[in-house]
Simulated scan of single mutants.
Amino acid sequence: MDRSGVIELVASRRASAHAPIVVGVSGYCGSGKSTLTRTLVGEIPGAARVRGDDFLDPVRSHQRSVDWDGVDRPRLVSSVLEPHRAGRASTFQRFDWSVRALGPAEPLPRTDVLIVDLIGLFHPDTSPHLDLSIWCDVDLDTAARRGVARDRALGRRHDALWRDVWIPNERDFDERYAPKGAASVRYVA
Rank of each mutant, 00 (worst) to 15 (best):
S26N: 11
G27V: 00
C29E: 01
C29G: 08
C29N: 01
G30T: 03
S31N: 03
G32R: 01
G32T: 01
G32L: 00
T35M: 13
T35P: 09
T35R: 15
L36Q: 07
L36D: 05
L36P: 06
T37V: 14
R38K: 14
T39W: 13
L40A: 12
V41H: 06
G42L: 06
G42E: 10
E43Y: 06
I44S: 02
I44H: 05
I44E: 03
P45A: 14
P45V: 11
G46I: 09
G46L: 09
G46Y: 08
A47H: 01
V50P: 01
R51E: 14
G52R: 00
F55Y: 11
F55E: 00
L56S: 01
L56M: 13
D57N: 13
P58S: 04
P58L: 03
P58K: 05
V59A: 12
V59K: 10
V59Q: 13
S61K: 00
H62D: 12
H62F: 13
Q63C: 14
Q63I: 05
R64Q: 10
S65M: 04
V66R: 14
V66N: 12
D67H: 03
D67R: 04
W68T: 01
G70T: 01
G70N: 02
V71E: 00
D72P: 06
D72F: 02
P74E: 08
R75E: 11
L76I: 08
L76M: 14
V77Y: 02
S79I: 02
S79K: 09
S79G: 07
P83R: 11
P83Q: 12
P83I: 10
H84W: 08
R85P: 08
R85Q: 12
A86P: 07
G87I: 10
R88H: 15
A89K: 13
S90E: 09
T91C: 13
T91A: 10
R94Y: 05
S98K: 13
V99Q: 13
V99H: 11
V99M: 11
V99Y: 04
A101F: 08
L102P: 07
P104W: 06
P104K: 11
P104D: 15
P104V: 12
P104A: 15
